[in-house]
């Protein structure tokens, strides 16, 4: 049986409106009526499939995830409290605005919620402040990518390649055993690459979404 004929039978089975002639054909044809019985039987069997309980440890993992834990940014601030204090003071003094929410809002009508930031703006700060800004910027871009309306648009091969490169960077950032993290310089370079890749990805997704609309 062709998918077209099955589509007709499914529409008939589910009570959708069919052209009277097609509905009459189904009713008059013994073979198709028996196929209809099979389709009803299969739907019934699908609905009778058993539920599947997750493994016993799953709930403990959920509870561990929902327990109040400091974010990676706040872990950073705990590790470098003086650096953070200096960063905040410097940022206040210089009035550096890394990301302006209004900027995000103003872009809404034309495109996705990708905040625009210039990395050179943070280059003037100390190394710790640059590092914090990169982490922060990376988180913003990632959130923006996750919640963009174009998230439903298919990922192109180039975009997938970018995702793989980001995943590789992530494994470099997390691969070192605890207490043996790469130097701050090395991490800063990795975060800088991550931000640039995320920016390319966001830009690419924006273009994909626009071409999908038109």
């Amino acid at each position: 049986m062709t998918p077209e004929k099955i589509a007709d039978l499914l529409a008939h089975r589910d009570g959708e409106r069919l052209e009277p002639q097609r509905a009459a054909e189904i009713e008059a044809d013994v073979e198709r009526r028996s196929q209809l019985v099979v389709l009803r039987q299969l739907k019934h069997e699908l609905n009778e499939l058993p539920l599947v309980a997750p493994p016993p440890e799953a709930w403990a993992q959920i509870k561990a995830r929902t327990a109040k834990q400091p974010s990676s940014f706040s872990r950073f601030t705990q590790r470098f409290p003086l650096a953070m204090a200096a960063t905040v003071a410097l940022a206040t003094m210089l009035g550096i605005v890394i990301w302006d929410p209004a900027n995000l809002q103003s872009q809404r009508p034309d495109g996705p919620a990708v905040p625009v930031a210039d990395l050179s703006a943070v280059a003037s700060g100390s190394q710790a402040s640059r590092y914090a800004a990169l982490v922060n910027r990376s988180q913003q871009l990632e959130s923006a990518l996750l919640y963009q309306p174009e998230a439903t648009v298919t990922w192109s091969e180039d975009q997938q390649a970018l995702l793989y490169r980001i995943a590789d960077l992530d494994s470099e950032l997390t691969a070192a055993p605890a207490g043996e993290l790469p130097s701050l310089d090395a991490r800063e370079r990795l975060w800088e690459q991550r931000v640039r890749l995320l920016e390319s990805l966001a830009q690419s997704r924006r273009v994909s979404a626009q071409s999908a609309v038109f």
Binding site: P3, I6, A7, L10, Q35, V38, L39, Q41, L42, V153
Partner: peptide, 26 residues
């Protein structure tokens, strides 16, 4: 709407699925 496709896509996928299921069932 969920898949970002058309209703025809959803209908044709359903029909294809049942084509396979019913042939294996028979």
């Amino acid at each position: 709407a969920l898949a970002g496709k058309t209703t025809s896509y959803s209908k044709s996928q359903l029909a294809r699925g049942y084509q396979k299921l019913s042939s294996r069932y028979l």
